[in-house]
Every structure is written in C-alpha cells, then in structure tokens.
C-alpha cells in the first residue's frame, strides 16, 4: 500500500473514521516493514549461529591451542628466547623471519628496531638484511633491493675493516671469510628483480651468487627459469642439466627441460 492510498482510504463506517484519524506508525510503510523483517531475520540468524558454533564444537571445551603451523611454532620458540633477552643474532633472525612468515609486518619492523638496539650485527648486517626481507615480503621490491645493497656494503666494510685492523681480528676474519649474509643479500636482490620481472638484472645477481657457489642446484634452476624468460633457451638447458648433476631427479629441473622441449 502506498502512502497516498493509505491517506485516502474511504471512511464509510466508524472503524474507517478511526483509521483515518489514527496516527499511523512507521511500520505501515511497506519498505520499513520489509526491512524490519530482514533485521529480525538477521538477529535470529545471528543467535542461531552462536548456538550452532556451540553445538558443532567450534567453540567450547578445550580452547587452549598450541601452534598450528610451522611458522607459529618457530615464532613461539624464537619469540620466547627473544623475550628472555637472548643476544643470539640467529634467534633474532628466526624471530623476525617468523613474524614476516605469518604476515605480522608491524611487529617484524619493531623487532628489527629492538634487535638493532640489543644485539651487535656489525659483521653480518643481519637487521638490515631482515629489513630487506621484510620489504620484499611487503612487495616493496625496489626498497628491498636498496636495503640488500646497504647490507652488502655493511658486510664488505666490516670485513675490510677487520682485515685492516690486523692481529687477531684479521686472523679470525681471514679464517671465517666474509659473512654468508653477503650471499643471502645477493639472492634477496635476485628474487626482488625476478618478482619485478626484471630478468636481466635477476640473472646478473644469480651469476654473482653462482660464482661463489656453483653447486647451488636450486639457484641454477632459478637462473635457468630466468633464462627462459629472456628467451635464452641454450643457457637455460645448461643450467637445468647442471642442476640435475647435483639433484638427479629434481622435478623442477626436469620441468624446466620439458618447458624448453629439451631431452631429459
């Protein structure tokens, strides 16, 4: 019934007269009435949903829960050690990586800052590298590349400084070599270029990495795939075959060979 219909109802008898002078309520509006039905339905649905989660055991007894995933477990274990004030930079690294893994980027950034003020990372530039990882996970690839560059510079300068200092410091530096984080930084750059679709730069970084570690089958495969992207199938085949020398049944390497139509 429309508003006009309602106002012009015939008043042929007493009842109709009473209706005409009655102050009509909002529920006489069919739209309001329909909306109120829907609202009531939603309230009922909401209440039934609450009962339903109880009946189906979604909530109820046993609300204690331990970690459900590896990332949660790592976060828990390393988080406990960090909370206990560990000075082990590897534990900090694992903690930050776990936070990045579960997508808690804000906490990861705070942990990087806390770590910087708690632990000495002058040799491996761990927290700068962690920042690069964080930026990469956030999809800020160019900033990640810049952070990885910064970490590489820090690592290089630290190493050179220790050599230049001579004595025990130089001896240890010579013995240990440059931090492994240097290679990690190269890979962060390579992956960032890959995710940006800048394949030539990615290949360049893979080349640098493989110069020091030519047996890294997974990196050979990554480079092979990058070579496919730039149309260099010969180089790709060479990389896949090199990878198969180290991992004979590597599914990724075989898939790469298949992709370029090369014999297995």
């Amino acid at each position: 019934m429309s508003e006009t219909d309602f106002a012009q109802e015939p008043q042929s008898d007493d009842l109709s007269s009473k209706r005409a002078v009655r102050r009509p309520g909002v529920f006489d509006d069919p739209v309001v009435r329909t909306m109120s039905y829907v609202a009531s339905g939603l309230v009922i649905l909401f209440l039934v949903a609450i009962v339903s989660v109880m009946i189906t055991g979604v909530v109820g007894a046993g609300n204690n829960r331990g970690p459900r995933t590896l990332a949660e477990k790592n976060l828990l274990v390393s988080g406990t050690e960090v909370a206990n004030g560990t000075a082990d930079v590897n534990v900090w690294n694992e903690y930050i990586s776990s936070l990045i893994g579960v997508g808690e980027y804000g906490r990861a950034r705070r942990a990087i800052e806390d770590g910087r003020s708690t632990v000495d990372d002058s040799i491996g530039a761990d927290f700068t590298l962690a920042e690069a990882r964080l930026l990469s996970a956030q999809g800020k690839y160019n900033e990640a590349i810049a952070a990885a560059d910064k970490a590489m510079t820090q690592i290089q300068e630290s190493y050179d400084g220790r050599i230049a200092a001579g004595g025990e410091s130089a001896r240890v530096a010579n013995l240990d070599g440059m931090s492994d984080n240097f290679g990690v930084a190269i890979l962060i750059k390579a992956y960032a270029y890959r995710d940006l679709g800048e394949w030539d730069q990615a290949i360049e970084q893979y080349d640098i990495y493989l110069k020091d570690d030519s047996t890294a089958a997974d990196i050979l495969i990554d480079r092979g795939n990058a070579h496919i992207k730039v149309g260099n199938e010969d180089a790709a085949e060479k990389d896949f075959r090199a990878a198969l020398k180290f991992i004979p049944n590597s599914a990724e390497a075989i898939a790469g060979l298949d992709a370029i139509g090369a014999k297995r």
């Binding site: 508003e3 509006d29 739209v31 609202a39």
Partner: peptide, 20 residues
C-alpha cells in the same frame, strides 16, 4: 497524517537501514 507519516517513515527507514 500523510506528511507526519512520511517523515516518520523516512526516519524509520534510516534507522532500520542503520540496524541492518
């Protein structure tokens, strides 16, 4: 009645829309 009802109805619609 028509005017008053229309005003109340508009208000009712708004309130119910908010509730929804």
């Amino acid at each position: 009645v028509t005017t008053g009802r229309a005003v109340r109805s508009r208000r009712g619609r708004r309130i119910l829309a908010l509730v929804l």
